[in-house]
Design a protein around this nucleic acid. Structure first.
Lengths: 167, 167
DNA sequence: TGTTATTTGTTTCCTAGTAGACAAAATAAA
DNA sequence: TTTATTTTGTCTACTAGGAAACAAATAACA
């Protein structure tokens, strides 16, 4: 319950440079979106990262673990842990392809399918809450700008200035 | 150095739902902005969060630790650790105000002033790199949308639907 | 006044995520 | 072929951050 009379802040502070900092704005926005995720799906035993991974595997059955890593910008070490845990939980099946015995192909189990189906069904609600403060047009524009900012609009092969780009 | 001929991805994958996910887009954008921070300030022994804290204290000498927490959405536990470490490093001075002996007022030391001055001087370069893919107008619009999304435009006292809002 | 609630910062324990080294497999180069 | 080089996933620390319990101080209240 929100206080009927919100407590007045004890201090007046200036946040000049904060609003100018894209990094800060992005961090806060991401914190909020995580918060909305847990507000809607807190009862499910899945974290945001796992949900994204499951969804990507659903869309691309047989996708290789490394490709999931690169696509979602999740470090390989972390990916390894996550996948093994989800395998243990019976959500994901791992298979070594014959043409490359280093790699691992990922597919969802029945349980995984059911799990991600129940989750993605509530994605729209999360999105709705996340951008509740924006008009629909603004929400769409925000997405477009973020996609462009992230270089996800380039089809492929472009030179990236991504500092996290590990090749 | 970027490969002259970028390696073709081993698999064609679809990322339908990824582009629709504001959470994912925000996470990637934030990762990139962190990457640019370290690309520009990697030699400094300061992390993004610490830089933001120092900058906020510089703007608001005597600000209370809890207010820094709330403003920057950093949990109190983490804040406590961070401040104590920066005090140990001689960047920040802590003082207990007479009117409330629970609280702690924060100020920068000479060293802290010098440190943050050197850092903020390079903030524009970080920002420039972060939004390099956008036109100036788009960069400004992105900021505006994020500020609105985060509810930072409301002057105060509004009812927030922020799930991370801890009162 | 005493008594209960709330605020403020800290501490302890735990988890998510990272860096770096590693082994196995595949590829390139000799 | 043999020998390097690269890729792929894993493992072992290590670090940042979060949750919950806590003590001290303050505020609210009977």
């Amino acid at each position: 319950m929100a206080s009927p009379t919100p407590i007045a802040p004890a201090q007046k502070i200036t946040t000049e440079s904060l609003r100018g900092s894209l990094g800060f704005l992005l961090r806060v926005a991401q914190l909020r979106s995580f918060g909305h995720f847990f507000a809607v799906l807190g009862d499910e035993e899945v974290r945001p990262g796992e949900a994204t991974v499951l969804d990507l595997i659903r869309e691309n059955p047989g996708i290789r673990q490394g490709m999931v890593s690169k696509t979602l910008k999740i470090k390989r070490a972390q990916m390894s842990k996550m996948i093994r845990e989800m395998e243990r939980e019976g959500l994901v099946a791992r298979a070594v392809p014959e043409d490359d015995r280093r790699a691992i192909e990922l597919r969802l189990t029945k349980e995984g399918e059911a799990m991600i189906a129940g989750i993605t069904a509530r994605f729209p609600e999360i999105e709705r809450r996340t951008q509740a403060a924006l008009t629909p047009a603004e929400g769409a524009e925000l997405r477009r700008l973020l996609i462009k900012l992230n270089g996800l609009d380039k089809t492929k092969g472009e030179d990236s200035d991504d500092p996290d780009d590990e090749r």
